[in-house]
């Protein structure tokens, strides 16, 4: 069932496209979730098709979901803090510390 992987590839590159084009920090985060999700699918599919007797892919996905949750929580906290300071979350405007 190669098509699982093809779909996840499309999903991943949709995420890439969103990551490099969007201005909104939350939209970028959404794109990031898409990419992460595509990778999760890959792990699960490889585990199931190629090594059905083992659980590495399964557990990797499980932990990845947990880490994604943590990462999202922190990212959103940061974004809200940025919003409080500069009243928007446009990635081009977050340059106070750059210069």
């Amino acid at each position: 069932m190669i098509y699982y992987v093809v779909v996840s590839t499309l999903m991943f590159f949709a995420g890439v496209y969103g990551f490099v084009t969007r201005h909104n920090l939350l939209a970028i985060l959404i794109s990031l979730e898409l990419m992460l999700n595509a990778v999760d699918i890959n792990f699960v599919v490889f585990n199931r098709y190629l090594f059905p007797g083992q659980l590495e892919g399964f557990f990797f996905t499980l932990f990845a979901v947990a880490i994604a949750a943590a990462e999202t929580a922190i990212a959103i906290a940061i974004i809200i803090n940025i919003y409080r300071n500069i009243r928007n979350i446009n990635v081009d405007n977050v340059d106070k510390m750059k210069y």
Binding site: V20, T21, V91, D92, D95, K98
Partner: peptide, 12 residues
């Protein structure tokens, strides 16, 4: 530029 997104494009 300091824009992470441009860097990401180039990197990719």
């Amino acid at each position: 530029s300091g824009r992470l997104q441009s860097y990401a494009v180039v990197f990719l």
